[in-house]
Write a protein that binds this DNA or RNA. Structure first.
Lengths: 73, 73
DNA sequence: ATGATACGCAACCATGAGGTTGCATGTCAA
DNA sequence: TTGACATGCAACCTCATGGTTGCGTATCAT
């Protein structure tokens, strides 16, 4: 998921699901993926925004940068 | 654990256990911690070396750097 | 207006993660 | 040499993780 987000940091839930299935050959359902997204959202790594029919997911790498600043040198 | 390693990247299993219990108030046994270390070792984040009675743990942040280079811009 | 679509919600399930306990073993200090 | 100490090994237990299924709902295109 993060690999995918690092390429395009703005995606639809549906897009992301499709991409993961096709490009990484993972067998996962939309609902299962939504749970992962919820966790990332609670961690501040992803924010989501309702755009009509779609749910836009926006990746935010700040929390990762913060932890890495602590851990790497 | 990684917080602790980022301060002193070389520690004994026993030391690490004691530090985690005292400084972070986590209630964890040595055996439980050893399992975590084994996982970090398989992931290449920690290498261990037998020094007589002790098991020296050495932290290696290269794998983290590699992933972060992919994920952070 | 209606069907297709993208999503949310909730119940349910199996497995493994994460922990404990008990004991064996090698090493060091006295 | 012997006891204390740091660790290894393995069996065992308990939930929460990570998944599924089923269905309801809002939005869009036609």
């Amino acid at each position: 998921m993060l690999d995918e987000f690092s390429e395009r940091n703005e995606q639809t839930l549906y897009e992301l699901t499709a991409r993961l299935i096709m490009r990484y050959e993972v067998a996962i359902s939309r609902q299962a993926l939504a749970k992962h997204i919820d966790i990332l959202e609670r961690a501040g790594l992803v924010s989501s925004e309702k755009r009509g029919k779609y749910r836009m997911l926006v990746f935010n790498d700040e929390p990762l940068r913060a932890v890495m600043d602590r851990w790497l040198k």
